[in-house]
Nucleic acid binder design. Structure first.
Length: 251
DNA sequence: AAAGCCTCCAACCGCAGGGAA
DNA sequence: TTTCCCTGCGGTTGGAGGCTT
């Protein structure tokens, strides 16, 4: 189910990755990080283009990346966000720790699109029912219900804002959800300061992971939490990074 | 058994945005 | 201000494996 390996006219390898290549890429990134994807393949001894390396890392080799079946809860999140924002796979990936945008996109096209089309066909006789249905999808999100979640209130706010009309989100951002300070969410100020330092170093220095999980989360959250950028403060999100917990458990 | 069709997902491609020079 | 470079995003494709006839 993968493309057959081949070489282009510049000697760049394309197609499926072999285990040896994976090991080289993983080892290099774990040791030096990825300050420059373009240079990385040369330095790591890979006959690949930088883009290909990045993709392989983000979709497959990254620590904590999840493979296999999507849970009902994950699917509900995807459907809910898709209802609100359309094909914003990276936004969905930001809300589903461990899932890549590519995987979400594939899952949508192969499983969810048809399901949603069917649902909507069943609801189209009553447009108001359709709206209720999409809101219900979001409100069923496990991140609201997960009892283990530490920053429950923050997530509730995120979901509440997402559930509101997108067209009003800019004005809404000027009101309470976006203007709330870190302390408003119950994140200790000393911890926040700690994280801010870490975040600052993150941009300057190549990361040198202890266990990989930290990399995963900070990389994930800082680089792609576009929805949160729009709707809630970064400071709020940093709470998740400290804990390095998934937003919800998937069993 | 085998030929043709379908499904699914890893990987590729092109473009847009942001930052540096 | 403009140009160049790099990264990330989203659409699309290739092809292995499963299914149907």
């Amino acid at each position: 189910m993968v493309r057959a390996p081949c070489f282009d006219k510049y000697g760049i390898k394309k197609g499926a990755w072999c285990e040896d290549e994976d090991n080289k890429l993983r080892a290099y990134i774990q040791r030096y990080g990825h300050p420059n994807w373009r240079e990385l393949p040369k330095l790591a001894g890979l006959s690949r283009c930088g883009k290909s390396c990045r993709l392989r890392w983000m979709n497959y080799l990254r620590p904590n990346v999840k493979h296999g079946n999507f849970t009902k809860e994950e699917e509900d999140v995807i459907i809910g966000v898709h209802n609100k924002l359309g094909n914003k796979w990276s936004k969905m990936a930001a809300l589903l720790p461990g899932r890549s945008d590519n995987e979400i996109k594939n899952h949508w096209h192969t499983h969810l699109r048809n399901r949603v089309t069917k649902d909507q066909a069943g609801l189209k006789n009553d447009p108001s029912e359709s709206l209720k249905h999409s809101a219900a999808n979001l409100n069923r999100c496990p991140l609201v219900l997960n009892p283990n979640l530490k920053n429950q209130q923050e997530v509730e706010i995120l979901v509440a804002v997402m559930s509101s009309d997108v067209t009003s989100s800019s004005s809404a951002c000027e009101s309470s959800p976006c203007s709330l300070s870190v302390s408003d969410y119950g994140v200790p100020s000393d911890v926040t300061a700690q994280v801010s330092d870490t975040a600052g170093n993150f941009w300057i220095e190549p990361f040198l992971p202890d266990d990989g999980s930290i990399i995963s989360s900070s990389d994930h959250m800082f680089s792609s939490f576009g929805i949160a950028d729009d709707l809630i403060s970064h400071a709020t999100l940093q709470g998740y990074i400290i804990d390095d917990l998934p937003l919800w458990s998937t069993n």
